[in-house]
Amino acid sequence: MRRAAAAGLLLVFLLAGCGVRPSDVIIGGPAPVGTVGGARIYLLVGDEPSVVLRGPRTALPADVLTELADGPTPAERQQGFNTEVPPEIAPAKLGFSGDGTVVSLSADVDALSVLGVVQIVCTVQAVTSAAPVTLVRGEQRRGPLTCPKDL
């Protein structure tokens, strides 16, 4: 009885193990990295900051911030992009101090949402350098901040 059961099990094992069977999803190495051409600004898809490209790479940082303040185009909105950066931040001025980039905004810095701040910081870092960014308006300051490593 037990022997028959063992033989049956073996047979089932043999038959089931034949051929190429479908598998679960297998997670491999990191995705390939390519290059993008153009100035990058960060809009939101849901709660996720996502990069979009605007104009040539050589655009001035202040112009890029103006683009960010303008928000997504109608086509981008259709694809689910939105923004939490108020249009009032433009015009903005960029300067450099000892501890990084200083961005002077035309809007209330303290009133900006966390995601809005992330959008501005990431966009500024994308057009300038990896140095931390401080947002100022008169006496109001936020920062120095850096764009999160993994978006």
Binding site: G19, V20, D24, V25, I26, A31, V33, T146
Partner: peptide, 28 residues
């Protein structure tokens, strides 16, 4: 953010489906 793949059966013939996203390099 990683390359993923999966073996599936397409009408009896096994097929490997591979998917990946294109990542962009950041200045930092």
């Amino acid at each position: 953010g990683r390359v993923v793949w999966q073996r599936v059966s397409d009408g009896g013939t096994p097929v490997l489906a591979i998917g990946t996203q294109l990542l962009a390099e950041r200045p930092d």
